[in-house]
């Protein structure tokens, strides 16, 4: 699942921005990585914890579907805190 980048340059910039946003959201939430990974796994996530860590440290790109699940997990976990 550690996808090599296959999109064009414009998409790469967009993906970088999205990844940067996710990284910041993760930092701001102060979540343990394990908790995020567990939740992400629960909603169908497929990459391993190390790849998720690399993604959140902006060192790796993930396939679009996985990116969506990571951001969804971050969002839904903030709902948990609000409840």
């Amino acid at each position: 699942m550690n996808a090599e980048w296959t999109g064009g340059p414009d998409q790469l910039i967009e993906a970088d921005e999205q990844r940067h946003g996710a990284a910041r959201q993760f930092q701001d939430a102060g979540l343990p990585l394990l908790k995020l990974w567990t939740y992400y796994y629960g909603i169908g996530g497929d990459v391993d914890e190390l790849s998720l860590d690399a993604y959140l440290n902006e060192a790796l790109h993930l396939p679009a579907a996985q990116v969506g699940l990571v951001t969804t997990a971050l969002t839904e976990l903030t709902w948990d805190d609000a409840e």
Binding site: K35, T38, Y39, Y41, G42, I43
Partner: peptide, 9 residues
């Protein structure tokens, strides 16, 4: 959390 994640998955 683990049990919840397994169930959800």
């Amino acid at each position: 959390d683990l049990r919840a994640a397994l169930k959800s998955r």
